[in-house]
Amino acid sequence: MTSFVRRYGTLMALVAIIAAFSIASPQAFGTASNLINITQQMTLLAIVAIGATIVMAVGEFDLSTASVVSFGGIFSVFLFKLGIPAPLVCLAVLVAAGAFGAVSGFIVARFEVLSFITTLAIGTIVGGVTFWLSNGATLFGDIPTGFRDLARGKSFGIPILTFWLLGVSILAWILLDKIEIGRRLYAIGGNREAARLAGVRIVSNTTFAFVCSAILAALVGMLLTGRIGSASPTGGGGFLLSAYAAVFLGMTAFREGEANVPGTLVGAAIIAVVGNGLTILGVSTFMQDIITGLIILAAVLVRRTGAQGR
C-alpha cells in the first residue's frame, strides 16, 4: 500500500487537482476544449523539462536552459532575415545550441567543474550572443508560414504542439529507459566513480546529456517563435525554474528519487493545470507563483518524510 502511494502518489495528486478544479469550475475548467488547451500550455515547458531530465539523469544541472530557449528563437529569426531557407535555419539553430551544450558538458565532465557554475557561465555567454544578434529588441517579420505552421493549429482536433511533446517524450523515454545509453547516463548520475571503473565513458556520455538538453531548449525556442510569430531575447526566461520544478515533482513519482520522463510529464502537467485552473478561478499571477512554489515544497516534503518513515 505505502509503496503504491510512493509510486503513484504524485500522479494521484495530479488527478485530485484536476478533480478539484473541475468541481470548482465545471463550466470553464472541466471542458474538453480547456483540457486540450492545457496540453498545449504545458507542451513547451514539458519539452524543456525533458531536456532537464536527461541532464539530471547524469546528476547535473543545466542553468543555461533559459538562455538557450531565447537564443533558439532569436537566432532562427535572425537567419530568416538573411533569407536562409527554413530547413537550413532549423538545422543551424539546433547545431549551434548543441555546440553550446557540448561545451558545457565537456567542461563539466573533463575538468570536473561544478555544472552549476559551468552552465551559469555558458548561459551568460549565450544570453550575450542572443542580445548581440537581436540588438536587444524583439525580432519579428520574415518568418515563413511553413515554419509557423509547425507550432500552431491543430491536426485531428489536437494541437500540433501536442504531437511535438508526444514525439519528444517517446524519444526521451526510449533514450533513458530502453537503450543502452540511458543505463549509462543513470549509472553516471548514481555513482560517477563506480560507473567510470565499470568502463562507462564519463566525458562522452555527460557531454551527450548536455547536448540533448540544449537541443531541446533551442527546439522550444523555435516552437515558441513559430507560435507567437516573434522572438524576444528574454523569451525563455520563465522556463528554467518551472522546468526544474517539473523534474523535481517528477522525481517524486514512479521511481525512487530518480529523474524520469513519465514523472517529468506528470510534474509539468501539475504546474500547467494549477496555472490554468487558478487563472480560470481568477487568482492573480503572483498568487499562482506562490501556490505553485508551495505545491513543489509540499511534494518534496511528503516524499522526504515518507522515505524517513520506512
Binding site: R183, R184, Y186, A187, G189, G190, N191, E193, A194, A195, L197, A198, G199, V200, E256, G257, E258
Partner: peptide, 15 residues
C-alpha cells in the same frame, strides 16, 4: 567505487 546504489541489482551486474 563499486556499486551504483541508486540503480537496480540487474543494472549493476549488467552495466
Amino acid at each position: 567505487e563499486g556499486l551504483i546504489t541508486s540503480r537496480s541489482i540487474a543494472d549493476n551486474i549488467s552495466i
